[in-house]
Nucleic acid binder design. Structure first.
Lengths: 152, 152
DNA sequence: CCACGCGGGTTGTAGAGTGCAACCAGCGCC
DNA sequence: GGCGCTGGTTGCACTCTACAACCCGCGTGG
């Protein structure tokens, strides 16, 4: 009957989404590393966040990206060693460090962002704009649900 | 002018797609590990491929998933130790080993597949079917372009 | 026929990324 | 002033990964 067919269609769409997202995830890290060895996927994400937010605390990064605080601590240390971020102690609360991208950090970030955008742009070059915006909306929607589920 | 605006829209859609895909990729591994510690994301993918294809060679896995052959070798070793895959020497060419999931492997794979599908299903529960199928199509399309670009 | 090149796999090594647990250091509230 | 909480670091262990060097079986051209 028709209801059953529709349930099957739904199942198979979910199946495809699962398979394709997983497949993408497997490749992403390696691709990113190959493209710009100087800034791993995680580092890029963190630095990018700092740039957008205009500085934040390590704990914020950890919770926002579902990473352990130790992981963030080490990543930040590495970024600092590389001269890409600076830490400033918050005068109001001497426990917290406010993180900022340095000038060098902002510059590298800009370069990597450009090259990443170019890469994505190439892969999406022949898409109609409607499809692009819909795709973007779907991804946002999925990730939002995903984040919500992770927190529960 | 209108043309400029449309170019901007395009840019921003690409930007969002980039950001959201990256964000997803970062989480995927950890999420997968948390869900079923007995089968990592890579192992799942490889085992899944073996199951679908009904057996193949290690080299095929390596090229298909853009992994080093040593990586595949070790993953397969682990899967064999766990009793989830079996290796048979190809009678025609004694260099190659044909890999198959064992009964236990097929069973675990089925379980994990179910739990993964359930997870994705939950996250996508309130989506209209049209959106699901479109999202699935977009992802396939993107990954295809991505694979093609990687090979070049 | 056999030596060499090639292709499939394994192993040694090294390094990134990660989480957990234990710890230290400020902060604030009894 | 002590106790608990929060932000952060460090020690440890583990997985995933690539690269390089290697071994073995296959086939082809002297």
């Amino acid at each position: 009957m028709a209801e059953h067919d529709r349930a099957d269609d739904r199942e198979s769409a979910v199946e495809t989404i699962q398979r394709e997202l997983t497949s993408f995830a497997r490749r992403a890290r390696a691709t990113a590393a190959r493209m710009h060895p100087e800034l791993s996927l995680v580092s890029f994400t963190l630095l990018s966040h700092l740039d957008e937010q205009g500085g934040c605390r390590a704990t914020d990064l950890a919770t926002h990206y579902a990473l352990d605080k130790s992981t963030v601590s080490r990543q930040v240390s590495a970024l600092e060693r590389a001269g890409l971020v600076a830490r400033r102690v918050d005068p109001d609360d001497h426990r917290v460090q406010v993180l900022h991208p340095t000038a060098a950090g902002a510059e590298i970030l800009a370069q990597v962002t450009v090259s990443r955008r170019q890469m994505f742009g190439e892969r999406l070059a022949d898409w109609a704009e409607d499809d692009l915006t819909r795709f973007a909306r779907y991804l946002e929607r999925y990730n939002e649900a995903s984040r919500a589920a992770d927190e529960a």
